[in-house]
Nucleic acid binder design. Structure first.
Lengths: 237, 237
DNA sequence: CTGTGCCAAATTGTTAAAATTTATTGATAA
DNA sequence: TTATCAATAAATTTTAACAATTTGGCACAG
């Protein structure tokens, strides 16, 4: 079983200006927890670490502020955005609602190609149960899981809604990573997820928008209690 | 009748760093059509015009790229984002859908204070019919109209959904300005709007989420045909 | 324990100049 | 005339050095 892990970075081009490069790597590092929430982001350190000078670096940081992954305090530089239970809940609520809306539209607007891509990505995801190294399994599962959900959403046919979905997704990712880091994905949990996905595909193919939106919202909200425990264990309220 | 036109810019602080200042004024100028779509944004010109040097200016521009009001072409600088019928339709569709969702949530979650603010801002908006200079009337109406819709949306109680609403709003504004520029707001059009608002308030107070979402979506989509004509008259497809 | 004043460190912004890349012009050849 | 192409001009992108402010910490006095 070959796992399809391409680079698949943010969008497209590898050789753009330095600001975009710095933005991508910094964002990646923040989402993956290389920096602790509220950690100060020293200009001098970042300049050295990412090999860029003040100009492009500030560009990258100001974009991360727009993404809400970094906060700027006037005259006091940048910090990694704090994490909180309130934000955890709001982000997941907003995302569940938005994803529910998008799914509703996709069911209303999606054509045969869309259905085909949903079925295809669902099938590819279901096949990841086979035994392999835990890391490979997790990486492979996560990649195909994301592809599955992206395929579903793309049916809404609205670039702007999909863009908002991406923005929210990055923020969810930071919390999600906290979960993946601490929780080993058990085979029972995996089985539960597979059932949820199967049910989702079923109602989607039946074009039952109401039920699909409900299933999707529940599916997206399930990780919240676990992440809550992890946050509390780290003394974050 | 005193019109309440405060500065009320983007968020909060007036005296921040130069990048934010440049960002605000540039955004304002683009939305108000000071620059034509696809117009080249010369660094040298902008530096002189806004009185900032390369650093802060690039920061501002890269944020406008994130807002999709400016596009960056690698090694070839920045341009004002193009406008098209496709984008007009997608932006309005996305906004109508999102606003419908937000309204649904607001009706579900909004408390008495929310209802009160909806009624208050609706009342303030309805009072702008009195005769005054056309400019004053338009500015005052627009300001109160925005306040009315913001009050409605705020009931959803989700900072992240409201933030996405703001982002979309800025993009709608650019198209909307095209409309305000060319169309004189007739008293019959104003009367129609007032009826739509009254109907909206009524179903909101009745907590009829389904009907409210439909009314809201229609209300937001009505300007599209007019803007389409303006765009076509300008040779934009 | 609580301010006060000084000093080091960091942010923020400007300027000048280097390194690339793109655009233009004008001469030459088909 | 039209196309090609090299030389030149212009603009972007980045760096580096420096000035101006601001913040944070710390010794010291009350």
């Amino acid at each position: 079983m070959e796992i399809d892990m391409k680079i698949a970075m943010e969008t497209d081009a590898p050789r753009q200006n330095l600001a975009i490069n710095a933005y991508r790597t910094l964002k990646h590092d923040i989402i993956r927890g290389r920096y602790v929430p509220k950690e100060k982001l020293l200009m001098s350190l970042l300049k050295e670490r990412y090999g860029v000078s003040t100009g492009p670096l500030r560009e990258a940081l100001s974009q991360l502020v727009a993404d809400r992954l970094v906060v700027a305090i006037s005259q006091r530089g940048y910090r990694v955005a704090p994490m909180s239970l309130a934000e955890l809940n709001d982000i997941h609520d907003a995302r569940a609602q938005l994803e529910g809306l998008i799914l509703r539209l996709a069911i209303e607007r999606g054509d045969d190609d869309w259905e085909a891509s949903v079925v295809a990505t669902a099938h590819r995801l279901a096949k990841v149960t086979d035994i392999s190294s835990p890391d490979e399994l997790l990486d492979g599962w996560d990649f195909r899981h994301k592809a599955f959900h992206t395929a579903i959403a793309s049916g809404c046919n609205s670039p702007h809604l999909l863009q908002m979905r991406n923005t929210l997704f990055d923020q969810v990712e930071r919390y999600r990573h906290l979960w993946l880091q601490e929780t080993v994905m058990s085979s029972t949990a995996l089985e539960q997820k597979r059932q949820e996905h199967a049910a989702l595909v079923e109602v989607i193919l039946a074009r039952d928008a109401e039920q699909a939106a409900i299933l999707m919202r529940d599916h997206l909200m399930t990780p919240v209690p676990i992440i809550t425990r992890v946050l509390e264990a780290r003394g974050i309220s």
